[in-house]
């Protein structure tokens, strides 16, 4: 009987903990959002966050997109040549990259780079009292630390994905023309005839959402971290893992919302 009660208590505690966590995360997100729109503003910090999240992620995102486009062309050739559909490769590459792989892979890469850095930086600031020190110096930490990062990431990710789209298509083009023997003009024509504006735009919308999620999870986990070096490590891991999972889950939901009505 006691064992049963323990089990019920455990389930209750987990449920309560989950609800509490979601509530805290929601309040944190709302607070961060509201501080984006209320003065004082910190343009220098937004610029700095933009450099860290966007500019310094350029090489990683560019290489990821290029190789993804290349392998996509190679793989779809292997598959499609079995039933004589090689002509579809250009469309497959451009649609996969713009709608799906560009935003998701860029999101995962930036989460590992910038999201982890945010969690580590804010976590260290938390455990060394720097966040408390901000409060004592007439500065709201949510406004000074969190709002600029949320804003910068939400703007930076779509720009990174736009670049990823271009390089992904370029990667596919290079493999198709140099290795698989496609004609340059025909490949490009096939690429653009099947591409609609909404393919690209929906990818960019996804990217903006992913950018917000990366910064939110990075800041939230860093901001709440406690317990010295170990706590900062835990926060960093949690930031990357939670952002990655949320990106993949939201990717499905957004795809459903953005594309299913097209039928």
């Amino acid at each position: 009987m006691n064992k049963l009660l323990d089990l019920v208590a455990l389930i209750g505690a987990v449920a309560l903990g989950t609800v509490e966590f979601i509530g805290e995360l929601g309040l944190f997100a709302l607070s961060g959002l509201s501080h984006i729109f209320r003065p004082p503003y910190y343009p220098r910090l937004i610029g700095k966050a933009f450099m860290e999240i966007g500019y310094f992620s350029l090489p990683v995102v560019a290489l990821t997109a290029l190789f993804t486009g290349m392998v996509l062309a190679l793989q779809s050739y292997t598959g499609f040549s079995r039933f004589g559909a090689e002509s579809a490769i250009a469309s497959v590459v451009v649609l996969s990259v713009t709608r799906e792989l560009g935003p998701v892979l860029a999101g995962l890469m930036v989460s590992g780079r910038a999201g982890a850095a945010m969690a580590a930086e804010l976590g260290t600031m938390r455990v060394t009292d720097q966040i408390d020190a901000l409060s004592t110096l007439s500065t709201e930490p949510m406004k000074y630390l969190v709002a600029p990062r949320l804003l910068a990431a939400t703007i930076a990710l779509p720009l990174l994905v736009l670049l990823a789209d271009i390089l992904g298509v370029l990667g596919g083009y290079l493999v198709a023309t140099q290795k698989l023997g496609f004609a340059s003009g025909a490949y490009l024509l096939a690429t653009f005839t099947n591409l609609k504006t909404e393919d690209v735009v929906s990818g960019l919308i996804k990217a903006a959402v992913f950018g917000f999620i990366i910064a939110l999870m990075g800041c939230f986990n860093g901001y709440r971290s406690k317990g010295g070096a170990q706590g900062v490590g835990t926060a960093t891991t949690a930031a990357v893992v939670s952002a990655s999972i949320l990106i993949l889950a939201l990717d499905y939901i957004l795809t459903q919302v953005l594309f299913v009505r097209v039928r």
């Binding site: 600031m125 060394t128 009292d129 720097q130 408390d132 020190a133 901000l134």
Partner: peptide, 8 residues
């Protein structure tokens, strides 16, 4: 603050 808490 005890350890300074300077902004590094």
């Amino acid at each position: 603050f005890q350890n300074g808490a300077l902004f590094d």
